[in-house]
Design a protein around this nucleic acid. Structure first.
Lengths: 165, 165
DNA sequence: TATTGTTATACTCTATAACTATA
DNA sequence: TATAGTTATAGAGTATAACAATA
């Protein structure tokens, strides 16, 4: 069940280097995992030909009907100006719509088209497939624990003031 | 100890949006936490005026004496060409040295200078301070669990083949 | 006066290709 | 033939500033 499972698939994964004092840092371990995930996610989403944040945005529009571009930008921690390009793309592809809000005419009230909903569902499936090895490795309880701890860590960070000088 | 701690520090953190099917995805939660961590890390490291990967590289050189640039690049998942700029900077700042390997004259055998070791230690301290809110929120056992689960998830991903077509 | 959306711009990161010197 | 290091270059992502419309 163990015996060098890495070597079975082409180039053996090199033995990890020594990360010294960073080996038990949250940031290091989160970053390594995130980097490997995005590499695979980018690969999995390549056929859809959408830029990186597009799926998150579609999911958020779907889950928060009528939300604005600023709200989306805040949630995914990107600039308003960067969000414009993503919404442009989604709109041009017929996946989302901008509707002027009647109560606040500055806002674009965003929604998904049926095509957008369908594509979103398909892409979410691809994303889940990428995480498959993780879900195979961890028990259901462990996976739940991991998610819960990640959320608490994130919450703790967000609740803490950002300056320290 | 609770009672709306967010509101104390300027702009209250908005209520999180609904992430729908992505709310329990590993990738989403890892990404949100990682993004907030890097924002704060970049801020904390700004006074040192080194590019983003420099600390990781210093720590790895320190923990793996005589390692090569390629080995470092593989470990942090960046291109060899990108590593050149980092090592250039560290060398010009007197924080690291390149020494031609005698056994394989293609390799640069890397090492930290005493100045590099000192700066590394100082920066590691700053990085730890950034994670402080997390370590305050989680018990020692929970922190240990989080790190262990992140490592297992990463290991599972690395052991899995990357193509799937 | 502040906020939403927008454009333009610059800057950083990353990715690719080509080259050299070694192996 | 393959690998380590290097350079140059192009692309994507991100950040900043300015602006118009609206609150």
């Amino acid at each position: 069940m163990s015996e060098n499972a890495q070597a079975t698939e082409g180039a053996a994964v090199a033995v990890r280097m020594n990360w010294g004092p960073l080996s038990s840092a949250v940031g290091t371990n989160v970053r390594l995992l995130r980097n490997e995930l995005v590499t695979r996610i980018v690969e999995a989403y390549a056929p859809f030909d959408l830029r990186s944040g597009a799926l998150s945005v579609m999911v958020l529009i779907r889950g928060n009907p009528g939300c604005s571009q600023s709200e989306l930008a805040r949630e995914v921690a990107m600039d308003d100006s960067a969000m414009v390009a993503i919404i442009d793309e989604l709109e041009q592809r017929g996946l989302a719509r901008r509707t002027r809000s009647t109560t606040d005419r500055r806002r674009n009230s965003l929604s998904l088209t049926p095509e957008g909903e369908a594509l979103m569902t398909e892409m979410v499936g691809c994303g889940t497939a990428v995480e498959r090895p993780i879900r195979d490795e961890l028990s259901a309880a462990e996976l739940e624990t991991l998610i819960a701890l990640l959320r608490r860590a994130y919450g703790a960070l967000m609740a803490a003031p950002r300056d320290r000088a």
